Amino acid sequence: MIVKTFILALLVPSIDALLRFSCSQLVVERLDPLVNPGVTQSPHVHQIIGGNSFNISMDPSVSPADQATCTTCTFAEDFSNYWTAILYFKARNGTFKRVPQKGNVGFESSNGGMTVYYTPTLASAAGKYVTAFQKGFRMIVGNPTYRTEAEAKKFRQLTYTCLQNMNTRTDETLYFPKKSCPAGIMVNVRFPTCWDGKNLDSPDHMSHVAYPTSGTFENNGPCPSTHPVKLPQLFYEVIFATEKFANEWPTDGSQPFVWSFGDTTGYGNHGDYVFGWKGDALQKAMDTNCNINCPALKTQSIATGNKCAQSQKVKEDVDGWLTELPGGMPVG
């Protein structure tokens, strides 16, 4: 089923502006301090971006902004960590090769990574803006075990765009594209935008946030009474250079890409977030209604962001031709 195209927030009348910026790759490895805190290697591989305080365990009482010494993001006060699974190509002989990420339009010089959006909107007719995430805030959207459309529909706006060119922003689907995409596949991860106003996290890392009761964030849908506080819409765009494998598609027409957690359907799309902006920088940006560029924030060049990197905590080959997915994840 084709998902309705969502117009860029900048063009929607009820949305005033947005932050849109590049974050380069920090590290690729099997760590997940939210789902598997303290576990040396989580079940599947992630690409992590943001501050270099990312670790096996991340104490919510300690802000990444107080520990990180650099960030891969354009806004130099953002030491948050953002991560998604990575994509593999499954060859006809059954081996796997990691699909590299590439920079978005305007961010072509970034080192893999992703594009991050924080979008504010008017929370009431009185003109109150969204409440920025607080120190210790973290959340997850999506479920890597999902393999059906009905399951995937539980999360709004976790989609894929088959890029005909780098400016394609139409025809989003809940599932992996069924044909080769000339400019790659863009993965779209939009988080819930309503908060209970009390809990910075929850046992499932989801229950403290919710979607609007009707409509979407973009058209200013109302928050439920259980989650009355409007948050910025956090949105990731991750572009995988799948076009590099265009000549190696299976002869039976099946799509050859698989998430690092073994999903060949695309319905397990998900993303993780640990807030780590310095002080009240993000709230200032939301309140001053920044429009992509933001004079209220300190910036750094993409080249500087590219220099911020981590080595894997546990060395593991995630890039070569592999006989199985890292961690032995089954495919299906």
Rank of each mutant, 00 (worst) to 15 (best):
R30V: 03
Q101P: 00
H44C: 02
N93W: 09
T84I: 13
T72R: 01
P100E: 09
G38A: 09
S61Y: 11
F79M: 15
Y88E: 02
T84S: 15
N93R: 08
Q67V: 12
N52P: 05
F75E: 00
G50R: 01
G94E: 07
I48M: 12
P60K: 12
T84D: 14
P60R: 13
R30E: 03
M58Q: 11
K97V: 14
Q67P: 02
T74W: 01
F79G: 00
A85M: 10
C73E: 00
P43R: 09
D59C: 10
T72N: 03
F54M: 14
N36G: 02
A85G: 12
T71K: 01
A91P: 03
P33K: 07
I56H: 04
A91I: 06
N36W: 15
N81F: 05
N52C: 06
V35I: 13
G38C: 10
L87A: 03
F89Q: 03
L31E: 05
H44Q: 06
N52R: 03
T72P: 03
F54Y: 15
Y88D: 01
L87R: 01
Q47W: 06
T74K: 06
P100M: 05
D66I: 09
G103T: 10
I49A: 14
P60M: 12
V27Q: 03
F54Q: 06
H46P: 01
P43I: 11
A85Q: 12
N36Q: 12
